[in-house]
Structures are given as structure tokens and as C-alpha cells.
Write a protein that binds this DNA or RNA. Structure first.
Lengths: 387, 387
DNA sequence: TTGAAAGCGCTAACAA
DNA sequence: TTGTTAGCGCTTTCAA
């Protein structure tokens, strides 16, 4: 017998009601109350109705925490993602129109995960990193879910290492970080293939030969992979390609893209080319490419006539800018869905399966900024796009 | 003394480690382990390090459930939203380009809530309704969060009634459902004002006089409010406006919008007008308006030359279609942020504050489909928009 | 600064 | 079909 609860059932001491209260009020045991919620059919209808009535009257809501604790599962999957906002775009005047059109990675992944999670009866807990939180982000999430996905480089590797020993974790995008983490499932996107194909397109289909690549940090795995794709395509075509990107940006923001474009233009010497002018600027992501479009417009450089510009990612904004941005589209939504599938399977039958490593294919999207496409806009309901 | 745990600390029986394991391994009490995570400064540094080392070695992660249970709080806020996917758009071939551009309400709200929640140190739990789940959606969410927001008409009123007695709930969009729920905080959007202003624009600025309004279900409060705004503007201008929308759509999808446009055209008699032709079709949401644009194009009716078309919501897709859709933009992101602010405040100082009822202002966005705007697209980086 | 002990509200055997 | 009971892993007084 548990100690008498410090509350008289009739005498207005409002604590949140528990199974005990419902049980007492409906004249059954707490086990029966529990059954009514977990497995209604295992309780006689008459009884069940009495219990539900009591619950209603008391305002009873089962405690997820208590349930989770007792049953060792939460019915929740998690997602940790970095604070991905582009400082350029994230102005104080929040609801600008650009902002609206600006749907990031994480939104797509969230959509994908939410949808898949729902299909499997899970809810989704999302949390973005915020530097200097008291406890590490992961810990907060990890303690509340049955398994979770992490966007690469969101959380310290060591934290992940500890946590992934206790529950399923799938790493999204970016290559395996290190051998420490090789027991994680892992889904990546074909960055190298995509950039190679896009570069090939510029070289072979548009006949461009003087290309430059603007990359990201050395430790940004996606940007690095894209650069490798670029190198490969150049070399395959017999064009020179250095060991390093022509330029590197730290945050890969629009502002940096604009600066890069300026620098590239200045580098060649202002105006008519003594050193032959660049024919194509390839950026490691769409944000930079869009910033570059702005900068080029300001300087009166025509795209794609004077120079072709390409990005990578396939963010919606890339389609709204003029000229529309040629890019490589990442299947972020699918990434989220696959992540959930992997988690669910590992929580079920495949508890001890070997870690998998999926590579999702990407699409080259040819728009106006590389010299493709450019149908008249009027009468076209879906936005011009060349195959 | 609790019963001996059925696990030898040295003898490979891998259970997930608990405070007890960490305590034992580091030679302290479980209380101290707990302190290390909750309030590190209250533990001597030497001790703390020993505890953390042990935790690391064991792969210890605090159980969110146990913590929540013991401390009666979760550090999580929730959002329940309906399964809002437009069946027309949600084809099996998931990653179509339209789909990409199609960012719903819920995404915006999620963004807003996530951001605000993060600022306050909360994580966000999201769950969409799925008909026929075993337990009601709310119950699942409600038990795991400190407070949550619900999109109007996502969950049965009675469930909300019970739950909102136990934890803070804020209702988003749509008017108060009933007097039962008048202890909930509530945030709505100025549907009526927005539609009134948009309608006034068509009448006064474009000189249109033969308007029709395509609404939603009678029980869809937003659509109803919009219709009222339409009525008011018509009457203010001395134009006739019936007691009912000219047409109602059940799901307010693109397909229904297309059908509505067809019906409206057929109603007037095919071809040259015996009964004077409609000059403007106003739809209760963007989805329908976009469907209508398709239908009109198929029939060779020019927009806005032959007929003006408007929507409501401000979804990104509305900007991509041609002609770009004139609409009223809802501040969904802000809706999410305000919701979190309300919840956080009610969880803090304002526990017993009177329920509030916020009304967020909207913007009329004038684009080409009403006859406004239409700047050349080339060289315009942000997409044409008239003030 | 640390420890002992009593729950937090529920589930899950096992009995009846 | 229903009841009994022993935890689930943590926080939290209260003492030391």
C-alpha cells in the first residue's frame, strides 16, 4: 500500500489527477485504468465507460513521462539540427517576402521525418543547437526519444559516441565523421556525383572552359565533396583544376557569395580581360550563388551572357531569383523519410543489423543562370525549367 | 534501500546505465550524480569530474522521462496540427518541383515556434493528426510537454477541454470554438480585415463590379470570416453580396478551385455574355485560386485581362504561378512565435492571467492576377511585387 | 558539500 | 476480466 496521497478526493486540493484518482473515483484498480488507455479491449465495456467518465470529470491526462519510464519507450523520434539561419537573410524584420520563400534544409528534413514518423505512429521532437546551452543539445533530446537523427556536425562527436551506444542514431549528410562513429547508420547525398555532372554540363553542353569554384571551409565535408566532383569533371575534360577551390567561404552565406564574385571579378583585372575572363562561377551552395547574382547585377555583369553561375542545394529561392539559378537539388525530404525508416527498423526487428550507409542520388536542375532554359514566363504555371 | 539491481556492475549484463551505476562507479551517492547534471556548481569540482568520467565510460544519458516524472516538467513545448496536405499536390511521386515550392502553413508555424522555443530553452514536439489513432493525438502530445499549441479544429473540442484544465494550451487561428474553451489563450489572424481590404482594392482601384466569392465549408471559421470581409466590402461599395458564398468547396484544394472556376464560367453561359460576365473570382484560399488559374488557362480565359483572380494565405507557390497570385498574406511564422511567448509566460509568472485573444494583422499582396504589377522578370532578383 | 530515503505516475508480470 | 505489487530512473527534502 502506497502512502496516503496528500489530497482529499472531495476536498479541493487541486493536484493533477493520476491513475489513483481515476481508479478511486470509478471503483476499480489502477491497473484497470491503465488498461483502458493502453488496450481498451481488454476491459469490459461497462467498466471502461465508468473509467473514462471518471477521467473526464477529473481532467485526467496520462503522464507521458511516467508511461515512458515504466515502459521504456516514448513513441517519439528526434531530430537535432544546427542553427542554420543565414545571418544575411535573417533580418530583424522577420516576415519579409524573401524570408517566406526561403525554406531551408532543415524544414524539408523536418517535413520528411514528420511524415514518415506519423506513418509509424511516432511523434517528432525537434531541437536546434544553441551554443552554450547548459546541457548538450543531444543529451536533452536523447533522453526523451526512442531514437534520433542528427545533421552532420551539429553535436560534438564525443557526445554522439556515448549516446549512440544506448539508442539508435542516424547521421544525416556529410560523410562518416570518424571511425569512432562507425556504428551509426548514415545517410548521405551524392554531392560528388552531382557537382561532377553539373560541371560536365557547363563544359560539354555550354562549351565553357574557364571555370572557377568557390568552396567552403576545409572541414565542411559536403563542400569538399562537391569540390572533388568539380575537379574530376575538369580533369576528365582536360581542363586545369587546382588542388584547392579558387576561393573558400566560411559561412557560405549570400554576403560571402557576393564578396567572392567581386573578388573574382577584380582578380581578373577590372574591365576587358588582359587575363582571359572567367566564363563560369560555380558555388558550393545556392546561398552564395544567389549573393553572387546580386553582386554581378550591381556591377553590370550579365548572367549568363557574360558569365554562368551555378549553385548547389536546390532551395526554392533559387527559382525565384532572376536569372533563375541552375543548381543541383538535394532530396532533403527523402533524407528525412529514410532516416525515420532506418530508425524504426532498428527499433524493431533489425536491432542488431550492421550499420548501413545510404547514398541518395541528386538531380541537376538546369535553369537560366547557366544559359539553359528561359521560356517566357507568361502562361507558364509551374515556373520555367529545362530538362 | 532499494532492492539489489539485477545486474553485476562488472559482469557484462548490458542494461542502459542509470544514476546508480554512475554513483557506484564514481563512489558517490545518486543524489550527487543528479546534482552534477542539474546544478554542477553545487558539487566540488573534483567530485564532479569523477562523476562525469564514470558517466562517460558507462555511456550514461539521463532519462528525460525519469527527470520529467520527478520534477514535473519536461522542457518541451508541443504543436498539434491537422494533416493538411492537399491531396491534389501530394502525389506519390513525392519530390516534384511543385511540391518543393509548396510550403504549408504548418511549416511556417513550426519554424516560428521552434525558433521561439529555442530562445527560451525549450524543444518542440510536433505531431500531426492521423485519423483513427488509438489514443487521441492530443493525449499523446499533452502527456509529454509543458504546454502546447493546437491549430484550430485539429482535435476534438472535448479533449481540449479536459486537457486545458491541466496545462497551458493556446489555440491558433480560427475563432474561439465555443464557450467551453474560453479559458484557452487564443491567437487569430485578421481574416475579415484582410479579405475586406483585398475586395475593396478590386472594387475601388481596379473598378471591378461583378465579383464572385468561392468559400469553404460553413464550419470552417477562417473561410467564413473571409467571406464576411468580402460581404462588407461589397456592401460598403453598394454592390450586391448574398448571404452565402457563390460557391463552397469542401477541402479547398486545387482541384476544387479548378472545378469552381469551370462552374462559374459555365454558369454565365458559354462564350459571350448574355448575362454579364464575372470580372473577378475571389477564392477563400490560395490553393483554390491556383487551381482556378489552371482551369482558366485551359479554357483560354486570360487572367487578369478577362477576369481577375485572388487567393488568401500567401503560400510561396502563389508567387511562382503565372500570373503571380494576388493574395492576403498570413503571418504564420509570427503566429508560431507568439504562441510560444504566450505559453512560456503562462508557465512562468503569468500562471493565472486571464486568457488573452490576440489578433495578428495581415498584408494584402498585390501581384499580377488582379491586374497589378507585372514588371519584367529579368534583372529583378526578388520577384516582382507591387506595393 | 554530500547522503538517505521517499516518492513522481505509470506499466507489467503474476495472481486471482 | 480484474487486482496486487514491484519497480522504471530520477529529483528533492531533510539530515549530516
Amino acid at each position: 500500500m502506497r502512502f496516503q496521497r496528500s489530497r482529499e478526493t472531495g476536498g479541493r486540493v487541486s493536484t493533477t489527477p493520476t491513475v489513483y484518482d481515476v481508479a478511486e473515483r470509478s471503483g476499480v484498480s489502477i491497473a484497470t485504468v491503465s488498461r483502458v488507455y493502453r488496450n481498451p479491449d481488454s476491459v469490459r465495456e461497462k467498466t471502461r465507460e465508468r473509467v473514462l467518465a471518471a477521467a473526464r470529470e477529473l481532467g485526467y491526462v496520462p503522464s507521458g513521462n511516467a508511461r515512458g519510464l515504466a515502459s521504456r519507450s516514448t513513441g517519439v523520434l528526434g531530430l537535432c539540427f544546427p542553427d542554420y539561419s543565414d545571418p544575411d537573410t535573417e533580418t530583424e524584420a522577420a516576415d519579409t517576402d524573401d524570408d517566406h520563400a526561403f525554406m531551408l534544409y532543415s524544414d524539408q528534413i523536418i517535413r520528411g521525418m514528420e511524415r514518415a514518423a506519423r506513418r509509424h505512429g511516432y511523434a517528432l521532437l525537434i531541437a536546434a543547437s544553441l551554443k552554450g546551452g547548459p546541457e548538450s543539445l543531444v543529451a536533452k533530446v536523447a533522453g526523451r526519444v526512442d531514437g534520433f537523427a542528427v545533421l552532420a556536425r551539429t553535436v560534438p562527436t564525443e557526445d554522439l559516441d556515448v549516446i549512440s551506444r544506448r539508442l539508435p542514431v542516424v547521421m544525416l549528410a556529410g560523410p562518416r565523421e570518424s571511425d569512432h562513429l562507425d556504428h551509426l547508420d548514415h545517410i548521405e547525398v551524392a554531392n560528388e556525383d552531382g557537382q561532377r555532372e553539373l560541371t560536365r554540363h557547363l563544359i560539354e553542353d555550354h562549351g565553357l572552359r574557364r571555370l572557377v569554384f568557390v568552396g567552403g571551409e576545409e572541414r565542411a565535408p559536403d563542400a569538399q565533396a562537391r569540390f572533388r566532383g568539380y575537379q574530376e569533371a575538369c580533369r576528365a575534360a582536360g581542363l586545369p583544376a587546382g588542388e584547392e577551390p579558387d576561393l573558400r567561404a566560411e559561412m557560405m552565406t549570400q554576403a560571402e557569395g557576393a564578396r567572392a564574385a567581386d573578388a573574382l571579378l577584380d582578380r581578373a583585372g577590372p574591365g576587358d580581360g588582359a587575363s582571359a575572363p572567367v566564363q563560369a562561377m560555380l558555388f558550393a551552395n545556392d546561398q552564395m550563388a544567389i549573393g553572387a547574382l546580386h553582386a554581378l547585377e550591381r556591377r553590370g555583369v550579365r548572367v549568363p551572357d557574360d558569365v554562368a553561375v551555378t549553385g548547389f542545394d536546390g532551395i526554392p529561392l533559387g527559382r525565384l531569383v532572376r536569372p533563375a539559378l541552375t543548381t543541383v537539388r538535394q532530396p532533403m525530404r527523402q533524407l528525412g523519410e529514410e532516416a525515420v525508416e532506418l530508425l524504426v527498423r532498428r527499433l524493431g526487428e533489425e536491432r542488431d543489423r550492421e550499420p548501413v550507409d545510404l547514398m541518395l542520388p541528386v538531380d541537376v536542375v538546369r535553369r537560366a543562370s547557366c544559359g539553359c532554359a528561359g521560356r517566357p514566363a507568361h502562361g507558364d504555371l509551374s515556373g520555367a525549367e529545362a530538362g
